[in-house]
């Protein structure tokens, strides 16, 4: 019996090889088409940013690289527009950065602390509290935008980073993910730490936070991109041009279709590229953490 199966196996593998090659080709074809589909708009944005504005107005979008890239970059980053001359690309980049990082950090800190309380402490209404927090998932900022606006304005937080960030933080996503994660941490670890003399705060900082680092990285990516891409709320809450974020500011530039001015397509598209880069960089940078988190089962 044993020798039979041993001699048979090689002949079985042989006919499968050409089939496998075809599969590789089709798989790659699908992937390439998908990648092109995702990338073409970005390529168009890039070529547009390199052509003179007049060209775009005359001929529309083109897949041709022009010579205006430098010019448009300088304009996009350092030249101001609007009425107060306060929203250069650099300023908007800074504002977007503050919103993205502030939102992600705030959300992670708040979510972790809330989840810690819910999972590790015998609170009488812990489950009820959790579900109340959970319902905020059904009420994103867009739904409660008027009352939120009212509150922020009442507190005098218009055109401040606090007003920009805090209302966005108030939702359950991070709390929910960290709660699920903490529940998967073995009970024995908590007990070992108790016997080792770690109080609640020490356990949180010495054990739980380091254990969650891949989770924190994952949350940071998601939250940073989410915060960075916010449009509606920044539009409502920032009227001061010095507080504009990139995503909100780009729109303003293409809108100046008045008098003999041409819309500054090149500049706007270059700003769009700049707006895309940080989230991409964050994902690329944290990707190694992501993979590590998936392969290194740490707990």
């Amino acid at each position: 019996m044993m020798t039979d199966t041993l001699t048979e196996t090689p002949t079985l593998v042989q006919p499968k090889a050409p089939l496998l090659r075809w599969r590789v080709i089709t798989d790659h074809a699908v992937l390439i088409v998908g990648a092109l589909f995702m990338l073409m708009p970005l390529v168009l944005v890039f070529t547009t940013a390199s052509l003179p504005d007049a060209e775009i107005v005359k001929h529309g979008l083109q897949l041709r690289i022009g010579d205006q890239l430098d010019d448009n970059f300088t304009k996009a980053m350092f030249e101001t527009s609007g009425f107060t001359d306060a929203n250069s690309g650099l300023v908007m980049l800074k504002n977007s950065m503050i919103l993205g990082v502030g939102f992600a950090v705030g959300k992670i800190v708040l979510g972790m602390m809330a989840a810690y309380a819910l999972v590790y402490f015998r609170l009488r209404f812990a489950l009820f509290a959790f579900w109340v927090i959970f319902t905020t998932l059904l009420l994103p900022l867009e739904v409660r935008i008027l009352p939120s606006y009212e509150v922020i304005q009442g507190l005098g937080l218009m055109n401040t980073y606090t007003g920009l960030i805090v209302p966005l933080i108030a939702s359950a996503t991070a709390t929910f993910f960290f709660r699920q994660f903490f529940r998967s941490v073995p009970e024995e670890l908590v007990e070992a730490a108790r016997i080792d003399g770690a109080g609640p705060l020490k356990f949180f900082i010495d054990i739980l936070v380091p254990l969650s680092r891949t989770m924190i990285a994952a949350m940071f990516i998601i939250m940073f991109v989410y915060g960075w891409n916010q449009y509606l709320w920044p539009t409502m809450i920032t009227t001061d041009e010095g507080m504009f974020t990139l995503v909100r500011g780009i729109k303003q530039i293409t809108q100046v279709l008045e008098g003999t001015n041409l819309p500054e397509y090149g500049r706007a598209n270059l700003l769009a590229i700049i707006a895309v880069l940080p989230p991409v960089a964050i994902v690329v940078f944290f990707q190694s953490w992501f993979v590590k988190g998936l392969t290194d089962s740490d707990k």
Binding site: E191, A192, D298
Partner: peptide, 10 residues
């Protein structure tokens, strides 16, 4: 000493 050792993994 615990059944699953309960070592701090990090």
């Amino acid at each position: 000493v615990f059944q699953n050792y309960a070592l701090y993994p990090h």
